[in-house]
Nucleic acid binder design. Sequence first.
DNA 1: ATTAGGCCCTGCGCGC
DNA 2: TGCGCGCAGGGCCTAA
Length: 270
Amino acid sequence: MPELPEVETTVRGLRPVLEGHRLARVEPRRADLRRAIPQDLRQRMTGAVVTGLRRRAKYGLIDTDRGDTLIFHLGMSGRWRIDPDGIGAHDHLLVETEAGRLLALNDPRRFGSLDLVETAGVDEWPAFRALGPEPLGPDFGVAHLARMFEGRVAPIKLLLLDQRIVAGLGNIYVCEALNMARIDPRKPAGRIGRAKLALLASAVREVLAAAIEAGGSTLRDYARPDGELGYFFKQFRVYGREGEACSCGGTILRQVDGGRSTFACPKCQR
DNA sequence: ATTAGGCCCTGCGCGC
DNA sequence: TGCGCGCAGGGCCTAA
């Protein structure tokens, strides 16, 4: 379930296991995920000390004292298993610390990725250079949205999913934020007034912060080898709730936009 | 320059 | 019980 809050939760869960620890074993179990896994990953990571973990958009970053940064993306189905009870078919990377903790990057669909780049140049990494601002950072707000949406006729939902405009939103939280701000997902982005955009910017920050909070509260579950990630889904307003009642009393509809499900309330989202 | 659509891959839940 | 179908949190590529 990896959108921004899930990756943030993952990074926070990995931090106590990895930060400050030397890696005794780094072992890819296959040659590729979405794309090839760097062939020198094992050699460059084994013996290194992890100096820190961070997140950028939906990517997790693991910095080492050798000046390298391991960048992981969880795709649709990726997650890290902590001290797993055995190695499974979809555990594609094993990481073991000198302290004896074992991590397994598990990703059945293999839409995720692993890359190793020099820490000093990480901001210039091609996938990062094109990213828009962090939605929880200082550069995101109504002014940014207004600037990016000006003159655009594409549905606002599709633009919010564009990582070049805002980095880290996915299908769930876009649906949630649009419902909170009472905006029709199909409305042309450039025709949405500034007051609505202000509501939207606030909704984006609010829903992400709440989801991180919920994920943080379930780190114990996350850390179990068979654990699932986060339980914010219990708080979804519209996502996955087709036919149920919106908080306004309307009935939530599911429609398909750009090949992906959109959940929205036709009564209050206009 | 945008945007629509297809594709990558596996697993799960549903209806028959 | 078994099988086929649709669907899934993402991102990248092509073609119009």
